[in-house]
Simulated scan of single mutants.
Amino acid sequence: MGARFALGRPGGKTMKDHTMQLTGHITADSLMSLEAYSKWRKVHKAEVMAHRKRRTVHLGEHITLNFESETTMRYQIQEMLRIEKIFEEEGIQSEIEAYAPLVPDGSNWKATMMIAYTDIPERQRELARLIGVEDRMFVEVEGHQRVYAIADEDLDRETAEKTSAVHFLRFEFTPAMRAAIRAGAAVKLGCDHTHYPAHVQVPAEALASLAGDLA
């Protein structure tokens, strides 16, 4: 696809070429053209995957939290535009509206939570037993009270029969908690659902990255 298909906005502005710019606010103007992104991802995809891996925390055998960032969400949006070959403004804005809310905004961490069971009958059984599990996820900063997740703010992802295998969580911190995290306090991730009691210390590498999300 040639440069003439660079994504644009009214007034003659075009999306930035050749670099993924972190601006704190994802807009169409700050995304790359399809052509520029295709070139960029060949060089930088491994870096984004490493960034994502650093921010992934496993809780027990079946729950994983991917803590999102502007980098992971810009990558997700650009990937969707690339895969779907979206270059019209309405489609671009739709992808931004779907994923930009998952960028942390200085007082919180935001995460994609995934529940995984390889055996299908077991997965069906456990998703039925784990109704409400997303609301029992917590982060505990050393010396402070637990912060429970605010889950699925865009739409409800469970029914009366089962919970979803994917949830979106927000952990909101007080100024004192944020200061403690930035100062190096230990942080625990946990769940106190009756059928999935678990907790884990957030690894140092992940915590160093996550501390950067907090203003």
Results as ranks from 00 to 15, higher is better:
Glu142Arg: 08
Glu153Trp: 02
Glu205Asn: 08
Glu153Cys: 04
Lys53Met: 12
Leu189Asn: 04
Leu127Tyr: 05
Phe5Lys: 14
Arg9Ser: 14
Arg129Val: 04
Glu84Met: 12
Lys162Ile: 01
Gln124Ile: 11
Glu142Trp: 03
Arg170Phe: 03
Tyr75Val: 05
Ser38Ala: 14
Gln124Thr: 12
Ala28Met: 01
His18Val: 06
Ala198Trp: 09
Leu22Tyr: 14
His51Pro: 03
Phe168Met: 06
Glu47Met: 12
Val147Trp: 00
Glu84Ala: 13
Ile96Arg: 04
Lys13Cys: 05
Ile77Asn: 07
Ala208Asp: 15
Arg157Met: 12
Met20Leu: 14
Thr14Ser: 14
Asp154Asn: 09
His144Pro: 03
Tyr37Phe: 15
Glu205Met: 09
Lys42Ile: 07
Pro104Asn: 07
Asp156Gly: 09
Gly24Ile: 07
Leu207Tyr: 01
Tyr148Arg: 10
Gly184Glu: 05
Val133Glu: 00
Glu88Val: 04
Gly60His: 09
Lys16Leu: 15
Thr27Asp: 06
His199Thr: 03
Arg54Ser: 11
Asp119Lys: 06
Pro101Asp: 03
Gln93Ser: 08
Met20Asp: 07
Ala116Thr: 10
Gln124His: 14
Thr112Asn: 10
Gln93Asn: 15
Glu79Met: 11
Glu172Val: 13
Glu161Phe: 06
Arg52Phe: 10
Leu207Asp: 01
Ile115Tyr: 11
Gly24Lys: 07
Asp152Gly: 09
Arg182Glu: 08
Leu7Ile: 15
Met73Lys: 11
Asn66Leu: 10
Met73Glu: 14
Leu31Val: 04
His58Leu: 10
Ala185Glu: 08
Arg170Thr: 15
Gly2His: 05
Glu172Met: 11
Gly106Gln: 13
Arg157Ser: 05
Leu31Cys: 05
Ala3Gln: 12
Lys13Gln: 14
Leu7Gln: 10
Asp135Met: 07
Leu31Met: 08
Ala98Gln: 07
Glu172Gly: 04
Glu88Ile: 02
Pro197Gln: 13
Thr27Tyr: 02
Arg74Gln: 15
